[in-house]
Design a protein around this nucleic acid. Sequence first.
DNA 1: TTCTGTTTGTGTACGGTGTTCACAACGACA
DNA 2: TGTCGTTGTGAACACCGTACACAAACAGAA
Lengths: 214, 214
Amino acid sequence: MTSTGIGPPKRDTYRHGDLRRALLEAGTELARGGGSDAVVLREATRRAGVAPSAAYRHFADRRALLDAVCSAAQAALAIAMEEELDGLPNGGDPAEAARARLRAVGTGYLRFAQAEPGLFRTAFSASDNLRSAASPSRAGEGGLTPFQLLSAALDGLVEAGVLPPERRLGAEFLAWSAVHGLAMLLIDGPLRGLDHAQTQDIGRHLIDMVERGL
Amino acid sequence: MTSTGIGPPKRDTYRHGDLRRALLEAGTELARGGGSDAVVLREATRRAGVAPSAAYRHFADRRALLDAVCSAAQAALAIAMEEELDGLPNGGDPAEAARARLRAVGTGYLRFAQAEPGLFRTAFSASDNLRSAASPSRAGEGGLTPFQLLSAALDGLVEAGVLPPERRLGAEFLAWSAVHGLAMLLIDGPLRGLDHAQTQDIGRHLIDMVERGL
DNA sequence: TTCTGTTTGTGTACGGTGTTCACAACGACA
DNA sequence: TGTCGTTGTGAACACCGTACACAAACAGAA
């Protein structure tokens, strides 16, 4: 965060220093509060203490800024998933560990959707947000995007002998569909307002379904 | 459709007659073309041949118009699902028929998402679009909303003895999650551009997963 | 150092949007 | 016929995205 104070940051230098980053951070903050519709270019420049047209030195248009925010949101999602994975105990039965990793991927996804609904919606609102699921700017600290984290978990399931290899093809689409759909229900749908325990419960049921049905 | 011609419909009377309906239809047409962002109040009034402020006699604000369009889109979705159900053969094994009805609900959902991506996105973009899943304005010709159609199919599965009653609770959330998530992948995600056969195929796989995993 | 060129932010302007409000036209009903 | 509530008009406001000419700051060559 470049400026925590109220009001315009009042630069003393003519140059800003790192306007692109400042705009991206302001845009991300706007997205956090109100989803993709809330990331308005003029407000981002205002928060960066800069004239509106200055943004066009760093982003082709509002859409480009939004795409950058979208990538940042996906990276944040990847980090949430990685945190869930890192919290897993090491060792134990390999098959059970592989299953636990798939579950962690799912619960991390759901946890992020509920903790940061604005960012989550933004991550999947842009025009081609899912098209390039492998862009490095959308990765977490481990270098993997949310989609790649899921793929890795499924690969682990095959290696551990839990998932038959002939069922592996396209499995990420099935698993992703289920978890993503549930996330939407939880933040915008009739399942909104459930507390953490209830969320955990239905999330577990859903992942049970995926495991059984894959 | 009130006016298929180019240009403003040129009323001869001062009163419009049915402006609310005209605005709703114009808004729906805009949503069809470009999703919820495209439903612009001024453009809707333009198409209705009326001054922008006239819209405020019938809708509190743009959001209210968008909510109405959203309900219309959900009703269209319900109709697509009903069409799929109506195309099913009658008679036969009750268990197999119940399974076929659940599949029809899912394929109708996916078919609509691909045939009308703009309307589909609009149906699930509003703030409280899923909250009142039972509003009559969101129902198809049979009087059931998309969610209620799914619930009915699951009830049929229990009646036919295919689904154990203890698994019925919350099953619509699991099934809806999976199908809705897949729809998003198909219209905005990496699965975009698949032809009808491929879509059918992966849709079948997904519904297999749901049936097995429910 | 000074001169020159490139990068980056400024100021102003344009068209578009949602929204408000006083006013005018109409329809209905006494 | 007169009156009143409903519905559409016109002009205004603030806000948005975007374009453009201009100015300030930097970087490197002379």
